[in-house]
Amino acid sequence: MSFLGFCEWLGNTRGSVALHGSLRAYPILESTHVLALCLFLGLAVMFDLRLVGAAMRQVPVSQVAQRLLPWIVAGFAVMVITGALLFYGIPVKTYQNVFFRAKMILLFLAGLNALVFHAGIYRRVTAWDLDPRPPLAARIAGFASLVFWSLVVVAGRMIAYDWFGESA
């Protein structure tokens, strides 16, 4: 079965039909998805700003990471769960939306950047923990994170605008 076939099957399940047709649940999910941005992306941005040396320059990087990452991960979990449910409610149209596809690619790139950072320069954080301006690799990771996540937000917002869909 193709992924489109899977989406068609998913969209015909009782839960998906009920969610799509619900007057309350879908807006509540959308609101939760958007407002959880403050927790997830807001704190991630603060961490990234520390990495590029633009905020909290006197606070050890490892402390920012240890203290904020649990909240960032919790916020991300809310984003993923609400996001998955939003997809579940409207699978076919969402899958065919070009901005949704762009968002998924950008999400992958943002995740890859985080992975490279944690497996790479962050392993040696003790050597630069107190640097007001972290080393280049860390600054690049912070900057790339800011760019990728911003683009994820923009692409996410644009999913509502089905410019290139069949109904457009």
Binding site: L37, C38, G42, L68, V153
Partner: peptide, 25 residues
């Protein structure tokens, strides 16, 4: 929306700290 994320982060970071959460050190 991007402004929302920045405000949200800047507000939450300090409010969490006021609550003894996050960057409590």
């Amino acid at each position: 929306l991007l402004g929302l994320a920045v405000i949200g982060g800047a507000i939450l970071l300090v409010d969490m700290r006021l609550f003894g959460l996050g960057l409590s050190g």
